[in-house]
């Protein structure tokens, strides 16, 4: 399973949103996207939900917001994401 990294923590709105959605449009089925941002990207959730993505949001060790996103219908990816975030701190 592939992990695709995307760091949007230094972009000014709306740039992070644009880059995240562009990456999601190209996300292969057997991969997940790992996004790092300085804040919770509230507007993204609506988009994820409408486009069939599964997401987990956690606080990384550096205090940044980390999102793990995969296609909702691919169980293998979901299981992997759940495993990855199991021991991470909640975001809020």
């Amino acid at each position: 399973m592939n992990r695709i990294e995307l760091d949007i923590s230094e972009g000014e709105a709306p740039e992070p949103l644009i880059r995240a959605t562009e990456a999601l449009q190209q996300l292969p089925e057997d991969s997940y996207l790992h996004i790092t941002h300085r804040m919770e990207p509230c507007r993204l959730y609506d988009y994820l939900e409408r486009n069939g993505f599964y997401v987990e949001t956690r606080r990384g060790e550096s205090g940044l917001c980390e999102l793990f996103i995969g296609h909702d219908r691919i169980d293998k990816v979901k299981t992997e994401i759940v495993r990855l975030v199991k021991d991470m701190a909640r975001w809020d």
């Binding site: 230094e10 972009g11 000014e12 709105a13 300085r38 804040m39 919770e40 205090g63 917001c65 809020d92």
Partner: peptide, 12 residues
């Protein structure tokens, strides 16, 4: 402020 001034979020 975090959105447009590229700062961390306010402490919780």
């Amino acid at each position: 402020v975090p959105m447009f001034q590229i700062t961390p979020e306010f402490p919780i």
